[in-house]
Amino acid sequence: MDETGKELVLALYDYQEKSPREVTMKKGDILTLLNSTNKDSWKVEVKITVNGKTYERQGFVPAAYVKKL
């Protein structure tokens, strides 16, 4: 869990989004878990840094590609 009590997951593999509802992640990324009720895909939040500014983006990733921490 992070400092706000949200559950975290670790990306086990790289994943490139295939639709606007998904998010891209790299192996080793730590993501905030938002919903894990679907056995196939979990909703997560990723933090992306562009030019020194951090943005948050929500979307789905394959459940088999992440592990709860």
Rank of each mutant, 00 (worst) to 15 (best):
M1R: 13
M1T: 13
M1V: 12
D2V: 14
D2C: 15
D2G: 14
D2I: 14
E3H: 14
E3T: 13
T4V: 12
T4G: 13
T4C: 15
G5L: 12
K6F: 11
K6V: 13
E7L: 11
E7T: 13
V9W: 04
L10W: 06
L10Y: 11
A11H: 03
L12W: 03
L12C: 12
L12I: 09
L12R: 03
D14T: 05
D14V: 05
Y15M: 02
Q16V: 14
E17T: 08
E17D: 03
K18C: 11
K18R: 13
K18M: 10
S19Q: 06
P20F: 08
R21E: 15
R21T: 13
E22R: 04
E22D: 06
V23R: 01
V23E: 01
V23N: 01
T24K: 03
T24V: 02
T24I: 03
T24M: 04
M25V: 10
M25Y: 03
M25W: 03
K26T: 07
K26S: 07
K26N: 08
K27H: 04
K27V: 07
K27M: 06
D29L: 05
I30V: 10
L31G: 03
L31D: 00
L31M: 13
L31F: 06
L33K: 02
L34W: 03
L34I: 15
N35D: 15
N35G: 05
S36E: 12
S36R: 07
T37V: 09
N38V: 05
N38A: 08
K39R: 11
D40H: 14
D40T: 11
D40N: 11
S41P: 01
S41V: 14
S41W: 15
W42A: 00
K43G: 04
K43Y: 15
V44W: 03
V44E: 00
V44Q: 00
V46L: 12
K47M: 10
K47T: 14
K47V: 11
K47L: 11
I48N: 05
T49K: 09
T49C: 15
V50L: 11
V50M: 11
N51A: 10
G52I: 03
G52Y: 03
G52L: 04
G52A: 04
G52Q: 04
K53S: 10
K53Q: 12
T54N: 07
T54Q: 10
Y55P: 00
E56V: 15
R57W: 06
G59Y: 05
G59A: 03
G59H: 02
G59D: 00
V61Q: 00
V61G: 00
V61S: 01
P62Q: 05
P62V: 07
A63T: 05
A63H: 02
A63S: 14
A64N: 12
A64H: 11
A64S: 13
Y65E: 01
Y65V: 07
Y65I: 07
V66Q: 02
K68A: 08
K68H: 07
L69C: 13
L69R: 00
